[in-house]
Design a protein around this nucleic acid. Structure first.
Lengths: 182, 182
DNA sequence: GTCTATAGATAGATAGAC
DNA sequence: GTCTATCTATCTATAGAC
């Protein structure tokens, strides 16, 4: 038994996410998302009546991906150095940062997205707390917030500046942070 | 002797900056900028032939404002606690963060803006270095980068989440960072 | 129920009026 | 040199065809 409707919805969400990855929120139009799965723009609105409806669905999906990836990273990290390397690698993955920045922007405009974004932030912060305790470090709120903001800031700055030595600089900053936190 | 042309250009740039502060890059259209100074959209293009031309001029102006404000803050801070309070206050000033985020976005698309943004980032980082040395702290690249990313991250997260206790959390994270850096 | 053709709004750029 | 009317492209939403 096939569920063509849910199938298409899923495909549209995936297409929307891909566009956020490539071009950010500016490129996120109904026309482009629909075209990517060979549908008419007007047809997309049958599945998602408004642009916001689609955006919320995409945001939900992005959050799942984001948290799952962080979870995996935490579980796989066997040493602090390993964790630092893994986090640094994510900070220079521009497709990833573009999605975060897009959600950030959308949050500033659409309350529905903001609610989702806040949820994600809380979950993200919680997982960073786990990471700290996992390595026997004090996981107080201020220290977790520090780590979280550091991750966000490094990602955002690297996206905008596109320095060649971005990864090295981010690694160094993260290493210093973890050393200080120890 | 009046210079009406330069006058209008300045007014348009100021209007553009105001719109970035209020609505971010999404609200930055030629129509809205022109309307704010009672000009026709088409007339705006006489002063700034393309949207990018205007955006670059606005970005340049925003950078000047941004750096001047940081400079002032550094000079006025008499203690580390004072500096922390001043920085925390800026991180929750959403109009300010919106402009930074807008430039960040624009940098991801327009090379001209990226060059400017990189300039600003370098100047910003240099000034943060001054701040550290001013209080007798080691100002190595990794530590400055840490502080810079922390500032950016706290600002961006606060804009998206709009927590009521945002300022307190940011202050706490900053205090912890400075304590560790000491 | 599924999809398309079209409407209506707004974007940016330009030719040409004054 | 200064400004406006207009053109084309592109966006989202909807009425209605199948």
């Amino acid at each position: 038994m096939s569920a063509p409707k849910e199938d298409r919805r899923a495909k549209l969400v995936e297409a929307g996410l891909a566009i956020l990855r490539e071009d950010g929120l500016a490129g996120f139009t109904q026309l482009r998302v629909a075209a990517r799965v060979d549908l008419k723009q007007g047809h997309l609105t049958y599945y998602f009546p408004t642009r916001t409806d689609l955006l919320v669905a995409v945001a939900r999906s992005a959050i799942d991906t984001q948290l799952a990836s962080l979870e995996r990273m935490i579980n796989e990290a066997t040493s602090i150095d390993g964790a630092i390397a893994a986090i640094a690698a994510v900070t220079v993955r521009h497709e990833n940062t573009r999605v975060l920045v897009a959600m950030n922007q959308a949050s500033d405009q659409e309350p529905e997205v903001r609610a989702l974004f806040n949820e994600m932030t809380d979950a993200f912060v919680a997982k960073l707390g786990e990471l700290l305790t996992r390595f026997g470090l004090d996981a107080s709120q201020d220290r977790i917030d520090l780590l979280h903001a550091l991750f966000v800031g490094l990602s955002v700055v690297d996206l905008a500046t596109s320095r060649e030595n971005g990864k090295a600089r981010n690694s160094a900053a993260l290493a210093t942070a973890f050393r200080l936190l120890t």
